[in-house]
Every structure is written in structure tokens, then in C-alpha cells.
Design a protein around this nucleic acid. Structure first.
Lengths: 201, 201
DNA sequence: ATTCTAGTTGACCGCTCGGTAAAGTCAACC
DNA sequence: GGTTGACTTTACCGAGCGGTCAACTAGAAT
């Protein structure tokens, strides 16, 4: 990676970390630059605005999330139902680890930005909508698998169920953040199986 | 209401409306004052800080929400299951009306502030947690009714189910706001009956 | 009539915000 | 060895931030 690309990456990483642990508005360009050890002028050499930096942060966030949680959790070495159980464990442990590191449960980095910025920055809203779309597809895949092996009703609308799962997951993370308690994830997320309608044998 | 209390109320109303339609950080004390036609000095005569004003806004929000949506929707003139259906309709129409008025689906005013402020202002986080607690009790009541009339399993943990309902509702509103589409509410919220486990006769 | 006080006014504080501009540095390529 | 262009540095902009302050007004209580 060239020197410029390294600088750029440091800005993305600092922004991601700071915005996740606080909020978009509470973190300024100045602070991002200080954290990344980059001068403000350089910031605007790489990014046209705070908003466009954020769009790239969101893209990076999605890739990390898919690579480090979604794909491992939903790997096809287990039955779909078991994959969901694994996903719940991953989500729980991630929030536990975050709380240990920051002192706060931080919830979903995409959901956080979505609620804060959807009405204020159309580009950011669109981007988050697309991220959810990507995650949605991952869910559809597993649910289609579940249908194929007969774990769920053959007439189930997997596309709608995927949306339902996503919404429920976001809701649980919102509650966990509000209560600052990762146990909420462990306690509530398993109810997702009722939404999906797994046939318990 | 005395003159002072009227001024105070105007500040609360302006703050509530502006913060709901944008965000906590994006709305300044100055703008709230301008909207309420109050000088800044008066603001700090009534409220010790922007943060404490917000705590009072949240309290007001809770009362309005309970009085204008929760109590009417869950009134005991219908069976618990039907009450939930009515609640879904109310939630949907509220978001439709908001979108017509502001051009954006704004989601849940409490959830919005929860995600933005939970890690930044402990008093606000605590307050939101208490608001959710109040709403939680409303849900527990209906669910207990449902249990009493045999609409749900007699061994159901109504306390846990209430939390689940709340989380799901918040999640659905988050998705609706992100997609800026109130139809999300109409489409996804009915799935809550699967979480509750209504016995369809 | 005077005192008290709740409420109002508007100027002011230090600070940070997102963003700009211009000069300077350095390595690669001709 | 000179030129180019990517990258960096630093000073700067107007505006707005949350919050303070002292002077003022008006109405009620004494």
C-alpha cells in the first residue's frame, strides 16, 4: 500500500472507531485527523467532505461485518437452524467484547448511523439502505437453505422473513445499547426462531 | 398556565419537534429558542442545560405516546389479539402522517434519541431506559390479558414477550426510517403475532 | 409606595465546527 | 536535472456551538 493509501486508511479507521463509539455529529473532522495523525488539509485531499468519508466508512463496515461475522456464522457446515444459533452467539460475544473495550454496549454500527443521519443526509441514508440490502441477501440465502431441507414451511416467503429477521436484530441491538447490557442480546435474539418458524422436531 | 410556564412549554414543544425531525446534535439551543420565540437567557432560566431540557422532552414524549397511541390501541374493548392489530394500524398511520408532514419517516422518537445519545449522556440514557420500562408495562398488561383469556400459551413468560415485542417494534421503525417508507411498518409489524404466539383458532 | 421576584433581554465568552487556500516537500519519471 | 503530481503542512475563514452575565421589566405582596 502506498503512503497515501496508508494515510487514507488511517482516516477511515479512526473515523469508523470514533463514530461507532460516539456518534456522527459528536465526532469532528479535526478529531478524526488528530486520531489518525493526519493534517486537516490532507483529509480534504482524500475526501471531499465528512459526509463522503462516512459513506466509505459504511462500505468498509459492511465488508468487515460480512467477513468477520455473517459469513463465518452462516457457513454451510451446519443446518440452517444451527447457523442461526451460531450467529446469535457471535452477535452476543461481539457486544460483550465491545462493552469490555469501550465501557458501553454500542449496538449496530449501521443502525446507529441510520437513525442519526437518515433524515439529514440523503447519501448516507441511501448507503445504509444498501448495506441492509446486502445483509438481507445473506439472510435470504440461509432461509432458502432452510426451506430446501424442510426446516421451515415450504410456502414461507423467505424474502419477507429476511427483512423481519433484520428488523428484529436491529431492534434487539437498540435495546441492548439503551440498557447498556449485552445480556439482552443473549436473552432476546433467540426468539428470532419463532419469526422464522423453524419446525422443532 | 402562568406566562412563565407557557414560555417553558413552548421551549419543550419546539425542542421535541426539532429533535424528532432532525437529531439531538443537529439542533442547537439557539435554534430551539428562535423557534419558540424565546431569548437564550430565558432558556437557561428554565433549564440548566440542553441535556436536562432533553430529559423533560423525553418525559413529555412518553406521556403523549401513551395517551394518544398506547392506551387507545390497547383499550380493553377488544380481545388482546385484536388490540395488537389496532396498535399496528395506529403505528402505521402515525408514520404515514409524519412522512406527509415532514417528508421523511421519522421512526420512534425515543429510539432515535436512545441510539444517538446512550453512549454520550448517561442521564438521557437512563431516562430512555425508564421510558421503555413504562411502555414495557403496557405490553405486559395486554399479554397477561391474552394469557387469561387463553389466547396465548399459559406458560408464556409475558415479561420476556413484552421485551421482545418492544425490541421488534423498535427494529421495524428503524427499518422504516432507513428506507423512508412507512409501508415497512404495515408489512413487517404483523409478524409480531408469531413472537407472541397467538393461538389462531 | 416599595420591595421582591419571576421572567426577559441581548451582548458576550471561549471554543469548535466543516471547509478552503496556498505554499512547501518528496519521489518517480523523462 | 528538471518537471510533474501526489501528498503534506499550516494558517485561515465565517458561522455556530453551549453556556454566562448583568441589566431590565412588570406584576404581586407587603
Amino acid at each position: 500500500m502506498s503512503k497515501g493509501q496508508e494515510t487514507r486508511q488511517r482516516l477511515l479507521d479512526s473515523a469508523q472507531q470514533l463514530m461507532y463509539s460516539r456518534s456522527y455529529s459528536d465526532v469532528g473532522v479535526q478529531e478524526i485527523c488528530k486520531d489518525a495523525k493526519v493534517q486537516k488539509g490532507s483529509f480534504y485531499h482524500f475526501f471531499s467532505s465528512k459526509s463522503s468519508l462516512t459513506v466509505e466508512v459504511l462500505e468498509q463496515l459492511k465488508m468487515q461485518m460480512i467477513k468477520s461475522i455473517l459469513l463465518p456464522a452462516f457457513a454451510k457446515d451446519l443446518t440452517p437452524a444451527k447457523r442461526f444459533e451460531r450467529f446469535i452467539e457471535y452477535a452476543y460475544h461481539y457486544q460483550v467484547q465491545i462493552q469490555e473495550e469501550y465501557g458501553y454496549v454500542l449496538g449496530c454500527p449501521m443502525g446507529n448511523i441510520a437513525l442519526e443521519m437518515s433524515t439529514q443526509d440523503e447519501e448516507i441514508r441511501k448507503k445504509v439502505e444498501m448495506l441492509f440490502e446486502s445483509i438481507f441477501h445473506v439472510f435470504v440465502d440461509v432461509l432458502d437453505d432452510a426451506k430446501a431441507v424442510g426446516e421451515i414451511d415450504n410456502n414461507a416467503d423467505t424474502s419477507e422473513l429476511a427483512q423481519v429477521c433484520l428488523a428484529y436484530g436491529e431492534g434487539v441491538l437498540l435495546m441492548a445499547k439503551t440498557k447498556n447490557d449485552p445480556e439482552v442480546v443473549k436473552q432476546l435474539l433467540p426468539h428470532v426462531s419463532k419469526l422464522i418458524g423453524f419446525k422443532h422436531k
